[in-house]
Write a protein that binds this DNA or RNA. Structure first.
Lengths: 229, 229
DNA sequence: GCGCGGATGTGATCCAGATCATGCAGCACC
DNA sequence: GGTGCTGCATGATCTGGATCACATCCGCGC
């Protein structure tokens, strides 16, 4: 299902490919295919070969470890503009996580060859790629720190604060909407759904937040930030 | 304490710089300085500016999170040939971990500028850098998985097996030497020293390993691998 | 060979968070 | 207006691993 024309215009808006010359974009587009995936579809499993990497155009994808026993731990929840699978593609290794689509989505799949070729040609592209990997690495270290040095409550607070950081600091508080079901977010934070639920209610009981379905209202950002110690 | 001549010959043997042309090596060397650091010296703290990245020539360095309360969690233990600090350098962000020297060491410090310049010039170098970052990312995801999906015992077994994987599979078993004190290794595995000690003794009690100081003798690799479930 | 400090072993106890079990609310689909 | 699903809350209980508190061991300088 290759559709170079459409893919091209999407590509042009992905951070990674912005400012590429038209001919470069054409070459990339030639190796790119659109992937429509309905909710709950699995894009790849751990162990599958990585022939390229994915970009989310619209929709939502989760990356997760899945144990032999079926229980899973969500590594990340990805939305429009975000990409995944690059690292594993560069190493020419099988995927280490499983990617599952959370809501009906459109993705682009860029083949390895296109990226490798472009790296040879355009140092700016290489820089962009390096920047992307570095950012990922940085975020991952942040998660590692959170998981090993902070309590569940602290992780949730951190997550809420992070999720709302660029948003308008209205003085009536801030509204944060969880990107996925509570179960998925809980797992992303390395918590069980039950524990997540309890902590949310505890924070609500202390007047720090209000929860209505997936939307969390933070009454006072600073008070939430300076909580618990 | 810049010493281009010596640094050059070290650089030539670092995986990252292997196969670079002599003039490229010269340019890098011009921006590289040797750093001698005695045991327990801190190379940088979380929050310090990252002006470049480090390579271990000989010796050993640990990277760790340090909480306000003084307790730490070791992220990695690095030996000769390994480098660290690249990701943070590329993002032009302060360090997120603290680096402390474990035994008297010699390091190289390569300045940002040298790397950025070289990236422009040599796509092979960019590829090498990308490969390095990808590997790091991959390993980190492995740690994340271990910490969130495996028990302490499983993490220790995994660590032992990984540490001996390329070594000679003598049929009398394999000898693994812990790279640092048990306290440091324990923290690396996200365990307390006490817990680590107990698990080691438990494994020894089951006849799977023998521990004598820092050296661990694995009687039967396959039996160790297929333990616990 | 003595004393000292860092690195360990071991027991007793504690606790955050997981598990198990159950109820229930929405919401789509006959 | 059931009937079945998926998502969520909440109570009761369990447990891996952390903490605290000592006792040791071992190398090293003097």
């Amino acid at each position: 299902m290759t559709a170079p024309i459409n893919a091209r215009s999407f590509l042009a808006n992905v951070p990674l490919f912005k400012e590429l010359a038209p001919d470069e974009l054409d070459r990339i587009a030639a190796f790119t295919q659109q992937v429509r995936a309905p909710r709950s579809e699995i894009l790849f499993h751990r162990g599958d070969e990585a022939k390229g990497f994915h970009i989310v155009v619209f929709g939502q994808v989760k990356l997760a470890f899945v144990s032999a026993h079926g229980d899973e731990k969500v590594v990340d929840i990805l939305g429009p503009g975000q990409s995944f699978g690059e690292a594993v593609m560069f190493m020419e290794r099988p995927h280490v996580v499983t990617a599952q689509v959370l809501v009906d989505s459109l993705l682009l799949h860029v083949q390895r060859e296109a990226v490798f070729d472009e790296l040879e040609r355009d140092p700016r592209f290489a820089r962009r790629m390096i920047a992307g990997l570095s950012r990922r690495l940085h975020d991952l270290i942040g998660d590692l720190e959170a998981n090993s040095m902070r309590s569940g409550t602290q992780r949730i607070i951190g997550y809420l604060l992070h999720a709302c950081s660029p948003s308008s600091a209205q003085d009536g508080g801030i509204e944060v909407t969880l990107p996925a079901t509570k179960g998925v977010v809980a797992s992303r934070l390395n918590l069980t759904l039950e524990h997540f639920s309890r902590i949310l209610h505890e924070l609500a009981a202390k007047g720090l937040i209000e929860v209505r379905g997936r939307s969390v209202h933070i009454r006072d950002v600073d008070r939430l930030r300076g909580f618990d110690p």
